[in-house]
């Protein structure tokens, strides 16, 4: 019995590992295609989106089978529940990568857009999101709670850059009315990256739940307890 369970756990762990690697590549390639701009790379991202979706369904199905056949409890149950949610959050991040890639495919960028990207701190935004995704992945691999918790502070960076980007885009669109459409689409890109950060926070929360049974959902924003007088 134990060997069967261990084999199932190893198999699901490997699938999540592969899904995470695929989604990271999708996000990274969408970034590179935007910076290029590189339409061929963006098309590759869009084409691979189907693989992300198919992988999500496969992992959901495998975890459902694991729960039904092995009735997991304690750490095994937390693992199954956490991997289900991690799987769903990864798929959403994959969706955002796909949306950004499709934006690259349908947009004709001009040389001066690169300056706008710099004003918007696009690279910093994107690299922060990628670093968060990588750190959370490592925290799950190494079962390191401190590392998983370290991800949360980066979310503020994404929120802050996103807020500033809106102001920059409004100003830019006012001065360059011919670029209003680009500005609106770029606002969408920043919004997607900000939401990617939220999903990575969820990944970190689920990692901590799996390792330590600590539920952080909806709690991290609560005011810290006041010391007793």
């Amino acid at each position: 019995m134990v060997k069967f369970v261990e084999n199932e756990l190893i198999s699901i762990k490997k699938e999540i590992h592969d899904m995470w690697t695929l989604v990271y590549e999708q996000l990274d390639n969408a970034y590179k295609s935007l910076l290029g701009p590189d339409v061929a790379l963006a098309e590759l991202v869009a084409a691979r989106e189907k693989r992300v979706n198919a992988f999500e369904l496969k992992i959901d199905s495998d975890i459902e089978d694991f729960i039904a056949l092995y009735n997991p409890v304690a750490v095994d149950l937390r693992f199954a529940l956490a991997m289900l949610k991690i799987n769903n959050n990864l798929e959403r991040i994959g969706d955002y990568a796909d949306s950004i890639a499709r934006f690259v495919i349908r947009t004709e960028f001009k040389p001066e857009d690169r300056e706008l990207f710099e004003q918007l701190k696009l690279s910093q935004m994107y690299e922060t999101a990628l670093a968060m995704l990588k750190t959370t992945f490592e925290s799950l691999e190494q079962q390191d709670i401190a590392q998983a918790k370290s991800v949360f502070e980066f979310d503020e960076t994404l929120d802050s850059i996103n807020d500033q980007a809106i102001s920059v885009l409004v100003d830019y669109a006012t001065r360059h009315p011919e670029s209003v459409r680009l500005c609106i689409e770029l606002a969408g890109v920043f919004r997607k990256l900000e939401r990617t950060g939220d999903h990575i926070n969820n990944l970190a929360e689920e990692t901590i739940f799996y390792i330590d049974a600590e539920v952080l959902k909806h709690r991290r924003t609560a005011a810290p307890a006041q010391p007793e007088a």
């Binding site: 134990v2 409890v73 304690a74």
Partner: peptide, 17 residues
Amino acid sequence: IFTNPEKEATQNYITGR
């Protein structure tokens, strides 16, 4: 006990290890 037991021995037993 069945979601987050205190003792490792309990967890090992209920998970069949």
